[in-house]
Design a protein around this nucleic acid. Structure first.
Lengths: 335, 335
DNA sequence: ATGAAAGCGCTAACAC
DNA sequence: GTGTTAGCGCTTTCAT
């Protein structure tokens, strides 16, 4: 491996001069600089960023933990984050918690070990003690796609989204409602959607009880199909279903059709997330769209801001930046 | 920040003993070890992996460069790779080249700067000089989802896949063929698909000329729709289309239907990749499935093997490991 | 079973 | 403009 010393020796200068030349310092004579750069080229020297960050005590690596890489919901968010990071010379390390708290903890641990400069995370659970610990340790943390009472977050207004769904179904004349949701206490974003949905129905005089909710253990397409089977056992059969995630809805509607149920004539279905494929399904899906790229973008900006501040002064315990972006109802053929 | 020294002082031992205790060396008395671990707990000490890798001259970070994060084709591959890495205590840094050679180069540069131990990459172009340079520099490189004459790769047999498509269409009695492909000289995987497709047709006595291929600049769903418009200008209209990537096919078929063309009655469509949503479209898509997770898994295993070897002896220039996995035709409703 | 010294590749701080 | 010294947090080597 060729180091800065090799370059220095070969160019007949000190390592310090090389170091400066590489960072384009004005304190190096132009001719020296060009000679050095030539030697760098010749030797194929690549600076060691790890060594640099050891002495500078700041790392160029950011950590990103999401709950499911395979979820198309996250791709626009990730892309936006990567882009923001790149343009500020940061790297992003992605960890997929698979909605498993122990995976999440393992990633957080490992990320700390490689000294990440900042953390973006969609936590598995609302109990975010560990996040606070990390932040208190001086690493800024921004929560994505979830709310976080005690810190910065960027999410969508899921209560408003749930409300939109309810209003839409009410306006279509529906009176018998049901809901397909993830059986997981921790997913506050989903809980918010249902909260808004239920509240609106109740205000309209249609009490919505727990037993109108069907629970699934995962959000995969195949689970949606399973939920459709469960749904068809209900009697009287609801005329409308709010499926809290599009991927689930994909499988749900597909199985419904397979079993001879007409959508939306027999059952109206509303999804949530507006993933890229929702428009191309057998029955294009009515759903709630979130500004996904914007969520990633905002989160990244807040993190960058925190990173800059913590360079100047010690972690000033300023106000939390809590952003809630507005969702939008996309009406297609499933209602 | 709390360092190994802080722990040592507090525990009343030398840093060396702490270092050993943390790595669970047998050369530390059990009672000393437990005292140290307790102090570690108290102080919330987190070892600095970067510092460690600086002295050990080997990094726990692997680089992964893909051409498009938003492509569901890659998600199972990434997941498999992450899993393999995790179980061997490696981290994976993901870079999205967006099919742009300069992005790819930037990532490769940056990855070298953070001293990645190994590289997995789906190169934008077949010209892989830079990959050879990296490998010659001592960092093992494994190419994914493309062939690589001069190194290790794991891909699917795209020629065989193209053949399957042709045979399938021939067996259905089609005689007028066309093809939608990415206009990009570099994408050898797509070129292979078309090669197999064309060859089979020619062997069957149906010469397939360049002007039966329509070119697109990107693989996004919307581009598929554009290609459908272009396709409908052809006369005589081909009775079958081989769309070389499912995402394109999604938009292609959708637009065809929108314009009143029946699939498969008027036009038969075959896709490629079998992304998760292909089965749930208005017209479930006939396509060629690849063992995506296996590709990731194999590639990771080869890389790990190379990493272990290069720890022992200097980079032994052994035979390249070149793996081609078999694809499978999935017949659905679009043909 | 434990410790002291040296150094990984780099840069901050201070000379000259 | 350029060089010297010291040290980031850790482990290797060798001593005890």
């Amino acid at each position: 491996m060729v180091t800065i010393n090799d370059v220095a020796r070969r160019a007949g200068v000190s390592t310090m001069t090389v170091s400066r030349a590489l960072r384009d310092s004005p304190l190096v004579a132009t001719c020296t600089k060009s000679r050095i750069l030539q030697v760098v080229e010749e030797l194929g020297y690549v600076p060691n960023l790890l060594a640099r960050s050891l002495v500078q005590k700041r790392s160029p690596i950011l950590g990103l933990v999401i709950t499911e890489l395979a979820n198309p919901f996250f791709t626009p968010i990730i892309t936006a984050i990567q882009e923001g990071a790149r343009s500020h010379d940061y790297f992003v390390m992605i960890g997929d918690s698979e909605r498993d708290i122990s995976n999440q903890e393992r990633y957080l641990n490992q990320f700390q070990q490689i000294q990440i400069a900042g953390l973006l995370i969609t936590p598995v659970m609302p109990d975010t003690e560990m996040l606070e610990a990390i932040r208190d340790g001086g690493t800024p943390v921004v929560v994505i796609a979830r709310r976080w009472e005690k810190g910065d977050y960027v999410s969508a207004d899921n209560v408003a989204g749930g409300r939109m769904v309810a209003e839409h179904l009410l306006s279509l004349g529906h009176r018998r409602f049901s809901c397909i949701c993830l059986r997981e206490p921790g997913h506050t974003a989903l809980a918010d959607r249902i909260f808004g949905f239920r509240q609106t129905l109740q205000e309209a005089g249609f009490p919505f009880t727990e037993n109108q909710i069907l629970h699934t253990d995962s959000l995969r397409v195949e689970d949606g199909a399973k939920m459709a089977d469960a749904f068809l056992e209900l009697s009287p059969r609801p005329s409308s279903v709010f499926v809290v995630a599009d991927r689930l809805a994909v499988g749900f509607v597909d199985r419904l059709l397979e079993r001879g149920i007409k959508v939306p004539e027999d059952v109206a279905v509303v999804g949530y997330d507006d993933i890229r494929y929702s428009a191309y399904l057998k029955v294009p899906l009515t759903t709630v769209a979130l500004p996904k790229a914007e969520i990633g973008c905002y989160a990244m900006n807040i993190l960058l801001e925190r990173l800059n501040i913590s360079l100047d002064r010690p972690t000033g315990n300023r106000e939390w930046r809590q952003v809630l972006l507005q969702p939008e109802l996309i009406i297609r053929a499933s209602t």
